[in-house]
């Protein structure tokens, strides 16, 4: 072997920009998410089914100054965005359990770019969930000014970032192939406490006060604000800021621990 001439490889190779974050990767990730039947059902189909079951039938009623069916539609769009962003972010958990995140460490993808990919993927799925709910709403006679459609939609979608952060936090906390089976029921309870399934006014005072501190309350309240601004509870703003910051901080700390250990 020593008789062979030594061939020196070219060492001038490029490093991908943005730590490997790229659109093709995000697109493949979204396609992967959508191919998962359970994710499809829980994030895109179930909220719409709830709308037909509980929203469309109450189209003759009002909640405050808003049409009940529209009110329920916005609540369910918020719920859908919550489940979708969380499902997207919680993929971290499955990928860590399967050892995929370790495999990715053998590629130029930096851990921070991996996390960014997960956030973008999660937010895209959340946006799709809101859009589908609104399209179905508009098709079944929900009337809102264009400005309100946009404001409600953006609010439900952007505030769902809290749940993308929560998904990442839990994803790094519990490496499990079945993370969503744990998170699904948690989300249902949070949605109930947040007044997304029934208005908090149906409950007693103490329960209402506790519910106002839970993370889904802020998201729902802000998403509904364009419908009946006069009822807006300003506590919703610190609510999402504090929960968003707590989950992001938790996710960042666990992410750093994970990156060191892998």
């Amino acid at each position: 072997m020593s008789a062979q001439p030594v061939v020196m490889p070219d060492l001038n190779r490029r490093v991908p920009p943005l730590g490997g974050f790229n659109v093709t990767f995000v697109r493949l990730e979204i396609r992967r998410l959508l191919r998962n039947r359970r994710t499809m059902i829980f994030t895109l189909i179930m909220p719409v089914a709830f709308y037909f079951l509980f929203g469309y039938s109450s189209r003759g009623d009002t909640v405050g100054s808003a049409n009940a069916a529209t009110y329920i539609m916005v609540n369910l769009a918020t719920y859908g965005a919550m489940v979708a962003t969380m499902a997207g972010a919680a993929m971290v958990s499955v990928e860590r359990a399967q050892g995929w995140s370790r495999q990715l460490r053998l590629t130029p993808l930096r851990p921070a770019a991996y996390m960014a990919t997960k956030i973008v993927t999660a937010m895209t799925l959340g946006g799709m969930s809101v859009a589908i709910q609104f399209i179905v709403g508009a098709a079944t006679g929900r009337h809102l000014g264009l400005d309100k459609w946009i404001l409600c939609g953006l609010a439900a979608w952007l505030c769902a970032f809290v749940f993308a952060a929560m998904g990442l936090f839990l994803g790094y906390l519990l490496p499990s192939e079945n993370a969503m089976q744990v998170m699904g029921p948690i989300l249902a309870v949070l949605a109930l406490l947040g007044g997304l399934f029934v208005p908090l006014s149906v409950w007693g005072h103490t329960f209402r006060e506790i519910a106002r501190l839970t993370p889904a309350y802020g998201v729902g309240e802000i998403a509904r604000a364009p419908l009946h601004a006069e009822h807006f509870d300003w506590a919703a703003v610190p609510n999402i800021l504090i929960w968003g910051a707590l989950f992001s901080l938790g996710a960042a700390l666990l992410f750093r621990r994970d990156t060191k250990r892998v």
Partner: peptide, 30 residues
């Protein structure tokens, strides 16, 4: 990051829901 070193590890996990071709394609985007 420069692709100068690559490895086949015992522990590297694979995603079960992707096809063989998709796995390689996804990796190649990085």
């Amino acid at each position: 990051a420069r692709g100068l070193v690559a490895a086949v590890m015992q522990t590297g996990g694979l995603l079960k829901d992707l096809t063989v071709g998709e796995t390689v394609k996804l990796t190649s985007t990085l």
